[in-house]
Amino acid sequence: MASESNYYYVPESSKLPIFTALGMGLCAYGAGSWVQGHSPMVFLIGAVILAAVLWAWFGAVIRENLAGLYNERVERSFVWGMSWFIFSEVMFFAVFFGALFYVRTIALPELGSPLETELLWKGFEPSWPLHVTPEMAVAGEAAKFKGPREIIDPWHIPLINTIILLSSSVTVHFAHTALKNANRRMFIGWLAVTVLLGAIFLGFQIYEYGEAYRHLGLTLNAGIYGTTFFMLTGFHGAHVTIGTFMLLVQLVRAIKGHFSADNCFGFEASSWYWHFVDVVWVGLFIFVYVLGS
């Protein structure tokens, strides 16, 4: 039977959660007023509070871990927590993929059905990519939603990005193996390579967005094609940014010597997240880029 002190670590009361909630609340209220054209000040204050509290919170967790307060059972709670968090993220992407599939298989054929084209959208022809939106079919150049002139060719930047991201999943795995073999130099090296690959991926993505906006007429307003394209790739890009940041933090911690073969949850959780964004990208590459062109 475990003794009272080390069965499970229950932290003392803490100021961290409520200030996190305050930061989130200010961010939410501030974002609501910001999108309506008011000043972003409240949002920014909230964001600063949130960032500061999360810094303190993660710092506290790392200190507690280094102090040996977390036994195997506590770590198992973290493992379950991170796994189910990733599951909820999967569902978040699922809804945007679902919207894409719904539009392509149900909404667009319906908009192009004889009844709709007789009564509402004269001359509209469904196609994918949707260069001519229903509104354009009726109003021409006066339309608010103008479809893209061209779309991104999947076999250039997206293919390169696929190779980059898939490789980064492999390199983070190499880092993990190196850590398990207590090979510190290889661990840090492969982790650094992974972070670098993440950054390169994001660089290409930004370049691609620039091209889309400047030369292709592919924007957020470019009808449902632009909508699904940017929302799916955009949320993925946001997650890659978060994932890269997480791995960067783990890299700093690795250099500081926080990890050992049997105490490396922070790194492992970040790598699971990284594998998750990688899998989402494969879905994007297939369904948005390849099958969307």
Partner: peptide, 17 residues
């Protein structure tokens, strides 16, 4: 706020979605 057309048939979306 940002001109997407998830739920707007004019852009190819669908309120039923």
């Amino acid at each position: 706020n940002f001109g997407t057309s998830f739920f707007d048939a004019a852009g190819g979306g669908d309120p039923v979605l």
